[in-house]
């Protein structure tokens, strides 16, 4: 009942948050990149100069054109506008990150909370040993294995990465929860008879959110990189999907003469990953408590 303050309070809270966040210019740059990439991805069909170039489109007369006013980032060997394909490529990268994280974070966090809270019992042993097994496998290698056994596709790549990614959240939250459970505010809730659900999700979890968000932001970058790497070796998105990793892979064959085919998509990946990495630090500042 005390959760819904008036809109003035909310506005005030927002202003405070922005102030804390914006004190670090680096995180503002990160936020700018992330917003820019998200905007271009969301409105790609409307702002891309040649939206039809995203798919199966061939125009050999304009193949491998260097950057010009007509094609600011040049064209690839099929004559497709690289700028347009990058805008659509952002869609696949962001979707990959969002889907993987939304599959990975809830189970990882819940298992971490439970393992941390029940530290010293068989529940902790069970969860953490399973976590260790999954952590021992490098995600890229497993994703490679899965995608080469099954049909290579974006979907399979995402499943493979997700399968390997949740233990990191379990480990992160486990560490936080196992020390938070000894805090006096948790003891106070226990002593008064609060339910385990309340203690895990209302007392402990809110104190882990800042670390989880920071990690999620950094992981967005990592997942996008791994997805691109999979596409680069041909096990992720398949042509003619405008995936940034696939575009770099195709363009790499024409380096260094037709450098624009590979370099611009690579820069696009860099901007996206960099944006999320810089934003991660901003989350830490945003959730910091200031003393009066």
């Amino acid at each position: 009942m005390f959760k819904s303050p008036t809109w003035q309070r909310r506005l005030e809270g927002f202003r405070r948050g922005w102030y804390k966040f914006s004190r670090n210019p680096v995180s503002v740059v990160g936020l700018f990149f992330v917003l820019l990439v998200s905007f271009l991805a969301a409105f790609a069909p409307y702002i891309a100069p040649y939206p039809e170039h995203a798919g199966r489109f061939v125009n050999f007369r304009e193949a491998s054109q260097p950057p010009s006013l007509k094609h600011p980032f040049g064209t690839d060997v099929f004559g497709r506008d690289i700028l347009s394909r990058i805008f659509f490529g952002f869609r696949y990268s962001l979707m990959m990150g969002v889907v993987v994280l939304s599959l990975v974070v809830p189970p990882g966090v819940i298992l971490g909370l439970i393992a941390g809270y029940y530290r010293g019992t068989w529940i902790e042993t069970l969860i953490m040993r399973i976590t260790d097994i999954f952590l021992a496998v490098p995600p890229l290698i497993l994703a490679l294995a899965v995608c080469s056994v099954l049909t290579p596709s974006v979907f399979n790549a995402m499943m493979a990465i997700s399968l390997m990614w949740w233990p990191w959240y379990t480990r992160l939250v486990y560490g936080l929860a196992s020390s938070l459970k000894h805090e006096f505010f948790v003891q106070a809730a226990e002593v008064t008879g609060a339910s385990k659900f309340h203690i895990l999700f209302r007392e402990i979890l809110p104190n882990c959110v800042s670390s989880i968000f920071t990690k999620m932001s950094l992981d967005m970058g990592w997942v996008i990189l791994i997805g691109s790497a999979l596409s680069f070796v041909g096990l992720g998105a398949q042509p003619p999907t405008p995936d940034l990793g696939t575009m770099v892979a195709d363009g790499a064959k024409y380096l260094p003469d037709q450098w624009w085919i590979a370099v611009f998509p690579a820069l696009a990946i860099m901007i996206t990953v960099l944006g999320f990495n810089l934003l991660g630090d901003g989350f830490r500042d945003l959730f910091a408590l200031e003393e009066i």
């Binding site: 009942m1 005390f2 959760k3 805090e183 006096f184 505010f185 948790v186 003891q187 106070a188 809730a189 008064t192 008879g193 609060a194 309340h198 209302r202 007392e203 809110p206 104190n207 959110v209 408590l289």
Partner: peptide, 16 residues
């Protein structure tokens, strides 16, 4: 340390 930094005073007092 006995009051949860992520909850309001209202929420803390309402819990019991």
């Amino acid at each position: 340390t006995s009051l949860n930094p992520r909850r309001t005073i209202g929420q803390i007092l309402e819990l019991p």
